[in-house]
């Protein structure tokens, strides 16, 4: 019996002493944090994607509180609804941003760009870009090894086996910009998503002369200037043998799409039946 009692007493004593020590230490080394950090972190998506420019959601929350200029803080994943919640916590006005989407500006599929070399090493775009112009001979185009797909934390991209090009699943894309950073050739651009996802863009970034570019790729922009001439909104610029459509100015009239001889200009999500009268369709939306 005696043994049992001594054991119980000894163990309880150790327990009590440890508890007191723990309490003292916890009090002494306590870090006082703004409780709003936790609150904001709770309404954030907690994907830690870095799309906002901060390493993680908590860092973003801290930055939101410290920031003098709250309008520039934006979480692309949570979007406007999330930011309005954050604004409510801080008692500030939130900025309303238009939704964007990652756009792949290369149409050099296996069909459009023939293979000219065999690359034989680790399958990463970064390495190929460091080594040479790429298997297809186009020194601007997609390397088809999927660094962007690897970088996407939202499973919003996959490699199309047929074309060899990456595809963005637009419903899942939160325009965090990770793929833009991961692409060594800077092919991917964040563009305005457009009404019901409708948008027009130049799917090529080849800066070579038209004849040279065509040698490697049938879908290259050859800077013929037809889109530039026809655009009624001055949305198209041509620089370094390459056309670019400004998504701020584009009114989705699709005139450029119909004149592009190489189909380097692409349009997506336009309803099939409305193709004859595109303008009225836009107005009604």
């Amino acid at each position: 019996m005696n043994t049992i009692f001594t054991t119980i007493i000894a163990l309880s004593a150790i327990g009590v002493i440890s508890a007191v020590l723990l309490y003292i230490i916890a009090q002494k080394f306590r870090i006082v944090e703004d409780p709003r950090i936790d609150e904001i972190e709770n309404v954030l998506p907690k994907a830690n994607c870095g799309g906002c420019g901060y390493p993680g959601c908590r860092n973003f929350a801290e930055a939101c509180i410290k920031s003098d200029n709250f309008e520039i803080m934006f979480c692309p994943v949570g979007g406007t609804s999330c930011m309005s919640q954050v604004a409510k916590i801080l008692g500030k006005e939130s900025a309303i941003k238009e939704p964007m989407v990652a756009v792949i500006r290369c149409n050099g599929s296996r069909q459009n760009r023939a293979q000219k070399n065999i690359y034989d090493s680790a399958e990463t775009c970064r390495l190929v870009h460091n080594l040479f112009r790429g298997e297809s001979g186009c020194q601007y185009g997609c390397l088809r090894l999927g660094d962007c797909v690897q970088s996407c934390k939202f499973n919003a991209m996959y490699m199309d086996k047929e074309t060899g090009l990456p595809v963005v699943i637009e419903d899942r894309c939160v325009y965090c910009g990770a793929c833009v950073k991961s692409c060594p050739r800077k092919i991917i651009e964040l563009r305005k998503k457009g009404p019901r996802g409708m948008r027009v863009f130049v799917s090529c970034i080849n800066k070579e002369k038209g004849s040279v570019a065509r040698l490697n790729c049938t879908a290259a922009c050859i800077a013929c200037g037809q889109c530039f001439k026809i655009c009624p909104h001055n949305a198209i610029t041509i620089e370094n043998n390459l056309a670019y459509i400004s998504f701020e100015k584009c009114k989705l009239c699709r005139k450029c799409f119909s004149v592009c001889p190489t189909k380097a200009i692409q349009e997506v999500h336009f309803p099939a039946k409305a193709q004859k009268e595109p303008l009225s369709e836009i107005k009604s939306s």
Partner: peptide
């Protein structure tokens, strides 16, 4: 044909 393409890799 595909078998005659030059291989490219790092040293």
């Amino acid at each position: 044909d595909k078998n005659n393409l030059l291989k490219v890799s790092f040293a």
